[in-house]
Amino acid sequence: MVNRASAAVPIEGGRFMVIGGASLVGSATTEELLARGAAEVRLFDNFSFGSGDAIAHLKDDPRVTVVQGDILRLHQLLAATEGLDGVIHLAAFMTLSMDRDPWGGLDVNIRGVQNVLEACRASKVKKLIFSSSNAVYGYGPGVKGDLVEETPFFSVGAPPAAILYGASKIVGEQLCRDAYRRHGQDYVVVRYSTVYGERQHYRAANALYIVETHDAIKRGERPKVIGDGSETKHFVYVGDLARANCLALAAAATDVAVNTSGPAPVTTLELVKLVAELSGRPDLEPLLVEPDPGKVRLTSGGAFRIDHSAAKAAIGWEPQVDMREGLRRLLFWRDRNTV
């Protein structure tokens, strides 16, 4: 990890762009940037996955500009990055999308990152924050113990889409390292666990489990637990990630990757029971079901612990919102914003 004063980008008075801004993390990160005094936030999105609903509450702020564009079109990025202090790059195919369209996913997750880096270089953007994933450690029985930033990639026995996703994030991280080596492009990689929170969508494999469980409970159905319920999952509340993105911009750290996850893991059975309790239906006994081999689901489980010490040392971050409180906020929002 490198620390130098010039790598720190103050939020207050700064001009920033969130790529993939019309998203769960994008909307929360924009809120955090505005709360910290950003002078301008551009939301860059092609709206193939993003939604206008996710950012509807932000459009009246005069500091927010929505730019419809595609990271595979370099000329659009070049125009959009002019005059910026920092860029937060969130746009990507996730595991479920990668399963449906692996070639498209690799294009977005690799060539798209290279385009973002080239635009940052050409526009002299001071710092890039790249959203990566704990998928860079792989999947399966080889992923165990304490996951630190130097933990290698494991792939044996995992679904191809999950491995393609994790591998594409590894390549994206290395492209950031290469841009730093070649051009001095400051960056911080933030490795997310499964994100959940207000404005939750139906695209992420593990977070989908939360919203589908809530939907079933609202219909009066017994919630399903895939497997025996003992598998451990790793989630992080979206507000904690928004804070991590801003801290990474403002920190002196550069040329570093850090883990970000919630305060503690949760088993699938604990998760389902918690959703039922917070939905007011603790009487609905979970139903154990066998995993569907035709679906890519619940990909980030494992007997491991995600170590956050590097994030605390590099950018001053650690998780604050536990699973119960985060789920309470998510379900409160869903009950008021979904039919």
Rank of each mutant, 00 (worst) to 15 (best):
L284W: 00
K273S: 01
R281I: 00
R191K: 12
F47W: 09
D255Y: 08
R121L: 13
F332I: 07
A38M: 08
G166N: 08
V275I: 15
P10H: 05
G52F: 13
A244T: 07
V272E: 00
G83A: 12
M98H: 04
T194Y: 03
P141K: 14
S23C: 10
F235W: 13
D178A: 15
N3G: 03
A7N: 15
L298Y: 09
P291N: 08
A91D: 09
F235A: 14
F153E: 06
I170G: 01
S131Q: 12
G280W: 02
E221C: 14
D101F: 10
V136I: 15
Y209V: 06
G145E: 05
L327M: 10
Q185M: 13
L278S: 03
S309C: 08
V108G: 06
S97G: 09
R121C: 04
D228T: 14
D178S: 15
P263C: 04
A311V: 11
P319V: 03
P263E: 06
A310S: 11
P152N: 14
P160S: 13
I110K: 10
V64A: 06
V41L: 11
L288I: 04
L288K: 12
R181G: 02
G166Y: 06
E40T: 12
F44V: 05
S230M: 04
V321P: 01
V87D: 06
Q320E: 15
R191W: 05
R305I: 11
K273M: 00
P265H: 12
R328Q: 14
L58T: 01
G50W: 05
R336P: 00
A161I: 03
W333K: 10
V195S: 10
I55A: 13
I217Y: 02
A244H: 09
D53S: 15
G105R: 08
P282F: 00
V266M: 09
L90T: 05
L96W: 10
G21Q: 07
I217Q: 04
G112M: 08
A311D: 02
V296T: 13
A242Y: 06
R100G: 02
L287T: 10
T299F: 06
L241Q: 04
A91W: 05
T338F: 11
V189N: 12
A311E: 11
L241P: 00
G69W: 07
K218P: 00
G13Y: 10
A38P: 00
A80S: 13
D60E: 15
I226M: 03
K218V: 13
P62F: 13
A35L: 12
P10V: 05
N206D: 15
R243L: 14
V258E: 04
L147V: 11
D215M: 15
A167G: 01
D186I: 11
K224T: 05
D107C: 09
L175F: 05
